[in-house]
């Protein structure tokens, strides 16, 4: 079954699209079937059904009861390996 991942940013869609593209490639390489749901931070709450992971490129303080990882390393290039591993750890099981 496809695993739903929410990718959200606060402002324009550009940074979250870059993060989303990276996650799609990462999951493809690791044989994980994902369904990316790209939305604004304000829309997370109403899209939580079956969601396995949330990746954001803006700061989020709220706890949605779903693992939340910052996608900023996909923009800055710093800490990409660690972030990839964290995403895979959540999605693998």
């Amino acid at each position: 079954m496809k695993k739903k991942v929410i990718v959200a940013c606060g402002g324009a869609v550009a940074t979250s699209t870059i993060a989303a593209n990276h996650i799609v490639d990462l999951c493809k390489k690791n044989g994980i079937d994902v369904d990316i749901c790209q939305i604004r931070i304000s829309e997370i709450q109403s899209n939580l059904d079956n969601c396995k992971l949330i990746v954001t490129t803006s700061k989020v303080r709220r706890d949605y009861g779903v693992p939340l990882i910052t996608g900023m390393p996909f923009i800055s290039g710093i800490g990409v390996d660690k972030t990839e591993k964290a995403i895979l750890d959540v999605l693998k099981d």
């Binding site: 324009a12 869609v13 550009a14 699209t17 870059i18 593209n21 996909f74 800055s76 290039g77």
Partner: peptide
């Protein structure tokens, strides 16, 4: 063009990560 923006930002990201 917001569509082009993503493309432009991705290219910029490839440069600034170095």
């Amino acid at each position: 063009d917001p569509g082009k923006h993503v493309d432009q930002l991705q290219r910029l990201v490839d440069i600034i990560q170095d």
